[in-house]
């Protein structure tokens, strides 16, 4: 563990730019190289060595942007070990990287985009209707609440990935993220129903509002795209209103 903290902080901030120059062929490889460059510069002062390592790490790379902290930490740790002579072979670093990037992307997708983002959205929607009537604070709450786990995973993941290298995986398993997701999902559904009920108490009865909600859920289950349903609602409402004038 010989990288100074300054380098790790630099890698942490650079990991936010992992999508900074994205390609179709190799996706995030350039952002990943940019994030790791302080490590390479520290370990390999000679440009030719850096070129070799850079070329080695320049292949296809794609993972969830938040999980990139863990991956970059692990790679930084393994490269440090390798440079100091106690490490794995170079191929093993790439194997570990490709073994980890897929599942971490799946985890990030299911947790962050699939569950946490909609949960924060519906949570802020409910709070906006009841407790926080201010738009500015709702936005701040939404962005802040969502980014708490993001920043935590990125920073702590980077740190632990660097310290424990591939041993970080058994520790990740302890988090049982997948166990948490259905509870968050059920909570989100309850909040959505609550929100539908509280919107409805304006012009239509709560029961009517909930029936509409379930109806729309049904159309989406049938496979209709949400934007099409929105357009259809507008079109059919106008048609209906126009039809009423004929009567």
């Amino acid at each position: 563990m010989t990288l100074p903290r300054r380098d790790l902080v630099r890698i942490f901030f650079r990991s936010f730019l992992i999508q900074g120059l994205w390609t179709v062929q190799r996706v995030q490889n350039l952002g990943y190289l940019y994030s790791l460059w302080p490590v390479f510069r520290r370990l390999y002062p000679k440009r030719e060595d850096r070129a070799y390592v850079g070329r080695f790490h320049a292949g296809y790379f794609s993972t969830h942007p938040y999980a990139s902290g863990i991956l970059i930490g692990v790679v930084a740790g393994l490269e440090t070990d390798l440079a100091e002579g106690r490490g794995p072979k170079r191929d093993a670093i790439l194997t570990a990287r490709s073994a980890m990037s897929g599942p971490l992307s799946a985890l990030g997708e299911s947790f962050f985009w699939g569950t946490w983002l909609p949960f924060c959205a519906v949570f802020c929607w409910v709070l906006n209707g009841s407790a926080i009537r201010s738009t500015g604070w709702t936005i701040v709450l939404f962005v802040g609440l969502f980014n708490l786990p993001h920043l935590w995973v990125r920073s702590v993941g980077l740190w632990l990935g660097y310290r424990w290298k591939t041993e970080v995986v058994p520790h990740l398993v302890l988090f049982r993220v997948q166990k948490m997701l259905p509870y968050l999902a059920v909570g989100g559904m309850a909040l959505a129903v609550w929100q539908a009920a509280s919107i409805a108490s304006g012009e239509m009865t709560v029961v009517q509002g909930l029936l509409w909600t379930v109806f729309f859920w049904g159309t989406l289950r049938l496979g209709v795209r949400p934007s099409f349903v929105a357009l259809a609602v507008a079109g059919l409402s106008m048609a209906f209103a126009w039809g009423k004038t004929l009567l």
Binding site: G114, T115, P118, A121, V122, A185, V186, G188, M189, A192, V193, Q195, A196, I199, A200, G209, W212, T213, V214, F215, F216, W217, G218, T219, L220, R221, P226, V229, A230, V233
Partner: peptide, 12 residues
């Protein structure tokens, strides 16, 4: 808004 709530229900 009910479509929005229904979309959330579907997604969750």
């Amino acid at each position: 808004p009910f479509l929005g709530a229904g979309a959330l229900l579907h997604h969750f």
